[in-house]
Computed example of a mutant assay.
Amino acid sequence: MENYTYNSNLLLLEGLQVTQESMYPVFLFFLSSYIFIMASNIGIVVLIFIERALHQPMYFLFCNLSLNDIIGNSITIPRLLIDFWAPSSGHYITYAECVVQAFATHIYGTTSHTILMIMAFDRYVAICNPLRYTTIMSTRMVVKLTVSAWGAAFLLVAILLGLTLRLNRCRTFISNPYCDNASLFKLSCEDVSINNIYGLSFTVVLFTSSIGSVLVTYTKITAVCLINQNKSLNSKAFRTCATHLVIYLVMLWCSFVIIILHRFPEYSYYRKIAALLFHVIPGSLNPVIYGVQCKEIRKYIFTSRKISPVF
């Protein structure tokens, strides 16, 4: 008969299993990625807040994306780097720490969608209602959009983790590089049907809302550009929308890779790598694509020229 340890406060985290030969290159990759993510995203946030010319709704909304990348990577990568130097039998983590990590991980994934949704709305107003942009996208509206993006993610994830916390635990091993909701409820020997149903519903609602809102928004933006045939408007629309769309597609691609690999247990190792890259790739590319490629920010960084409003 199998022995179980009920409601143990100490869990064993598998971490990322790599060979002795690849340990140093992998460690350096994640370390350099983490340093770049922190430096670039913090730099973008500080630049936007201290430079008055960048005090525009588009940039304030983008700050949410940078803050999300900072939080999401800070909760997973440092712990991963520490575990590199500990034996596989010594990757212990307390249950409370695991819950906090799982909560932050799911907040990161959820707000990646909700923030890009409100940024799409901002681009829609700027291009389709340019004369009313400053009226619609007021400070109050920016605050409302920001609170709704984080608030919706917080509520959805709180319910997700709440359903898991009610379960008694009979296992202590987490087969993952970091803690997430699925890893936590798999520690239970109880019926987890409700968790699976809510988790699936959560994913369907989030992806449907995200893809649907972005698709509708860009359809309307495209229609306005085709009808007006204004070269100046179309140029600005392409410049500002292209960065947003590239970031969204990168994030969506990373999400789909993880979901697809979940369906193939034999590729569990690649799923774990993909789960880590879901944090690293968007977090590294977002400040480059949106920050450096954005004409207004690039002007300030490289030439310190005065910045004019986008619309």
Rank of each mutant, 00 (worst) to 15 (best):
Q229H: 12
I259V: 14
Y248E: 02
A237R: 05
S209R: 05
F185M: 06
L206G: 03
Y198V: 05
T240H: 06
H262R: 09
T217F: 04
L226N: 12
P265T: 04
W253T: 15
C254Q: 13
K236A: 01
A182N: 04
V214L: 10
L226Q: 15
A242T: 13
F185D: 03
V192E: 01
T240R: 01
T217I: 04
R239P: 00
K236W: 05
T217D: 02
A237W: 03
V246L: 10
F202V: 01
D180H: 09
I211W: 14
L261R: 02
S183A: 15
F256D: 03
T208S: 11
A237Q: 10
W253Q: 04
I211S: 10
L215E: 01
N230C: 08
R263F: 07
S210V: 00
S255N: 15
Y267I: 06
I221H: 02
S193K: 12
T208E: 01
E190P: 02
K186P: 00
S183V: 00
V257S: 07
L245H: 14
F202S: 04
I259W: 11
I211M: 14
V204K: 06
D191Y: 06
T243V: 07
L184W: 05
L233N: 02
T219M: 09
I211G: 06
F185V: 04
C179S: 10
V216G: 02
I247D: 03
N234Y: 03
L249D: 08
V216E: 00
I221L: 05
R239D: 13
P265V: 07
V246P: 03
N195M: 07
S255T: 12
I221A: 01
I197F: 12
E266H: 14
Y267W: 14
N230W: 08
L200E: 08
A242K: 11
K220T: 02
Q229D: 13
L187K: 07
S210P: 00
V204I: 15
I247L: 12
Y267M: 14
F238Q: 11
C241D: 08
K236M: 15
Q229P: 08
V205H: 01
V250F: 03
L233G: 02
L252C: 11
F238N: 10
D191L: 01
V204W: 14
Y218F: 15
I211T: 07
S213A: 04
N196T: 04
V257P: 00
T222K: 15
A242I: 12
I259A: 09
S268P: 02
L200M: 09
L184I: 09
C241N: 13
N195E: 11
L187Q: 00
P265M: 07
N230R: 05
H262L: 12
S232D: 10
L226W: 15
S209P: 05
G199D: 05
S210R: 01
I227N: 14
I211F: 13
W253E: 07
N195Q: 10
K236Y: 03
H262Y: 14
L249F: 14
L215F: 13
H244S: 11
G212C: 09
T219A: 07
H262Q: 11
T208W: 04
L245N: 13
R263D: 05
V205S: 08
